Amino acid sequence: MKEKAIYSFYNGINCAQSVLTSYADHLKFDSDMTLSVSNGFDGGMGKLQKTCCAVTGSFMVLSMSNPRRHLENIDDRNATNEMIQKFTSDYTILHGSFDCRTLLNCDFTIEEGEKQFRDLDMKKNICSKCISDSIN
């Protein structure tokens, strides 16, 4: 799954899409739908550099792996929340943060930050590792 996610990331889809679509076959969900639903998570939530979109992709995978949707399934919802909390804790220990701007240490919402992102090949040196570490 990691190889599929990294390949997809280098071929034009965002971090959240890469993580989520790498699980499409395993969880038996439509990969076109996953591309649509995770489209706006690029660059840490709509290029706002908030939560790393590899993390949000993982949140979606964890939610979809526990697909109880009915309001009366409080236990299932709590179990999903616990999985997300554990994932977030583990990811933060590994990377020091789950905030895109902190992880990249640049502001790519400005031209100077975009240049820094490219010049330091952060796509390869940071984002790829975040994607890989988001996949179990």
Rank of each mutant, 00 (worst) to 15 (best):
M1F: 14
K2M: 04
K2H: 13
K2Q: 06
K4M: 05
A5Y: 13
N11R: 09
G12R: 13
I13V: 02
N14V: 10
C15K: 00
S18K: 07
V19G: 04
S22K: 11
Y23R: 06
Y23A: 08
Y23S: 10
A24Q: 03
D25V: 08
H26A: 06
L27W: 07
L27V: 09
L27Y: 10
L27N: 14
K28G: 05
F29K: 00
D30L: 11
M33T: 09
M33N: 07
T34I: 09
L35R: 04
S36C: 12
V37C: 01
F41C: 00
G46Q: 09
L48D: 07
L48F: 14
Q49E: 06
K50C: 11
C52P: 11
C52Q: 04
C53S: 05
A54P: 05
V55S: 03
G57L: 00
F59D: 03
F59L: 09
M60H: 04
V61D: 00
V61K: 06
V61I: 09
L62Y: 04
S63L: 13
S63D: 02
M64R: 07
N66D: 05
H70M: 10
E72Q: 03
I74C: 08
I74T: 12
D76F: 12
D76I: 15
N78K: 07
N78F: 13
A79Y: 03
T80Q: 00
N81Y: 14
N81R: 15
E82C: 14
Q85N: 14
Q85R: 15
K86E: 03
T88F: 04
T88D: 00
T92P: 06
H95R: 09
D99L: 12
C100Y: 00
R101G: 08
L103P: 10
L104S: 02
N105E: 10
C106R: 01
C106W: 04
F108M: 10
F108I: 08
T109Q: 09
I110M: 12
I110V: 09
I110T: 01
I110A: 08
E111M: 14
E112I: 06
E114L: 08
Q116E: 12
Q116W: 14
R118F: 15
R118T: 12
R118S: 10
L120S: 10
D121L: 04
D121R: 05
D121F: 01
K124N: 08
K124G: 03
K124R: 06
I126Y: 02
C127K: 01
S128E: 15
S128Q: 15
K129T: 07
K129R: 07
C130D: 01
C130A: 01
S132E: 00
S132L: 03
D133K: 03
D133I: 00
S134N: 05
S134E: 02
